[in-house]
């Protein structure tokens, strides 16, 4: 019994002038899948992530996310898609420096729909930060900041979670903690797309997509 397809790209292409960092990507991701996108620097990983997260519009091709064809949306509509369907996790965490951990999570609620501080507290407790809700990002360690970022990505129940090198700025101990969180999310049945060049991180995914020179050179289930 195949699960529903949440994400599908058909001939997804991005061009910047004469450069084509991403060339005709065809890919399907089913609900609950954990996909790792890998590749060396300059292979088009970041461009792909920007397109998948609707931060950027493709030059050609189609991108259907949770039943919505997004390729031809306006910037304003793409904002709405990001808000409703995508949870973003960054390598540099990107927390608002003057808001506390809890408020950073609430910020996502604020832009999404309504604010429920208990819900946000729960989300922080879920990533193991129930005791640090009132701290500013500058008072948190890197691992803690990343966990706030994860809690923020989860708070609106997105259709997919897009993570860009989530452990890139972390030490080993924290990498472990974050990895465990991702495993947990996977168990809960979340759809995760992880962009990384760290093979260890890819090891736990269901499927690895390898990019090279903007094309998919390898796409297979890891297990």
């Amino acid at each position: 019994m195949a699960k529903k397809i949440v994400l599908e790209t058909k001939g997804l292409t991005k061009r910047f002038g004469s450069v084509t960092p991403l060339d005709s990507i065809n890919m399907q991701v089913r609900e609950g899948e954990w996909v790792a996108i890998m590749g060396p620097s300059g292979s088009g990983k970041t461009t792909m992530l920007n397109l998948l997260s609707c931060l950027d519009a493709p030059s050609a091709g189609e991108y259907i996310l949770d039943g919505v064809a997004t390729a031809t949306l306006t910037e304003k509509q793409r904002v709405a898609v990001r808000r409703e369907k995508i949870g973003l996790i960054f390598q540099q965490f990107h927390l608002v420096p003057y808001l506390t951990a809890l408020e950073n999570v609430m910020l996502a609620q604020y832009y999404h729909s309504m604010i429920d501080s208990k819900d946000a507290e729960q989300a922080l407790a879920h990533v193991g930060l129930g005791h640090r809700t009132g701290h500013l990002p500058s008072q948190l360690s890197g691992g803690e900041q990343q966990r706030v970022c994860i809690a923020r990505a989860l708070i609106n129940q997105p259709a997919i979670i897009l993570a860009d090198e989530p452990t890139g700025n972390l030490d080993e101990a924290n990498e472990e903690v974050v990895l465990d969180l991702f495993k947990g999310l996977h168990r809960e049945g979340r759809t995760i797309i992880l962009v990384t060049h760290n093979p260890e991180l890819a090891e736990f995914s269901d499927r690895v997509v390898r990019l090279q020179h903007g094309r998919v050179v390898h796409d297979e289930s890891a297990h």
């Binding site: 540099q92 965490f93 990002p137 500058s138 008072q139 890197g142």
Partner: peptide, 8 residues
Amino acid sequence: AEVLHGRR
């Protein structure tokens, strides 16, 4: 260290 880790 603080500056580089973006805590300021």
